[in-house]
Each structure stands twice: as structure tokens, then as C-alpha cells.
Amino acid sequence: MRWLACSLALFIVFSVGSGCRTDYDIADVAPEEHLESEDHHDHDHDHEHENEHEHSIDEEMEEAHAEGPSGHVHGAGERNHGTQWFFNQPWAAPFIWGKLFRDALTFLFLAVGIFLVTRRRRKI
């Protein structure tokens, strides 16, 4: 059983030893287009401000609470300003999904390994 313990240790070192910082600190490892995506969504605020008189009282209050330079909130499914943290979560970062899958397999392998090793010890 010693070979199993050794291979388990090696597997851990090689699989997660690359450092999980690069796995999950999305803000650090994200490609530029992800980080700059807020700019891609940028649009002409002047146009919106022209129609300011159409805003309801509620909308004005909403804008006062909203983040972003112009102090307004976009509709459903659109990025608001200053919400990069919101997109630095795994659901919005497909570039880490592969690593997520790899980590899941690592934990599964560890689970099976621990189960087998401790069962062997218990029988002795």
C-alpha cells in the first residue's frame, strides 16, 4: 500500500502544486479581454442624459444608489459600471472552468485514495 500513498502524494504535488493562486484569483489570471470587457460595454451616456427628463422619480433614486461614473443602472443582462468584482466570479470566467474540472478530479482521486488506504489500515 506504500506505493499508493507515494503516488497519492506525487499526484497532489504535481496537480495542485502549480499554485492555486493562478487557479482562482480570477482578477490576477484573467485575460485582458475579460478585464477590459467593461469598456467593451461602454456606450454613449450623453444620449441617455438627453432623455433624462423621461426618467421617473424612482429611476433617479435608483441612479443615485447605482455604482459607476454616471450613477445609473442598466437593464437585465447588461453590465453596470464599476462591477468588475461581479464578473470576477467563476460563472463568468470560462478560462478557469478547465482548472475547476481538474481540481474536482484531484479531490475525487484523493477521496478514493484515502478510502482505500484507511480501509486497509483498519483491517490490519
Binding site: W91, L100, F101, D103, A104, F107, L108, L110, I114, F115
Partner: peptide, 16 residues
């Protein structure tokens, strides 16, 4: 992927 990750981690925790 998220469900698979959660299940695998739960299996790991249970094995410990």
C-alpha cells in the same frame, strides 16, 4: 462543472 466540483469535494470531505 460546478455540480461535479461540489460532489467531488463532498466525497473528499467524507473520505477524510
Amino acid at each position: 462543472i460546478a455540480i461535479f466540483y461540489g460532489l467531488c469535494y463532498s466525497a473528499f470531505m467524507l473520505s477524510v
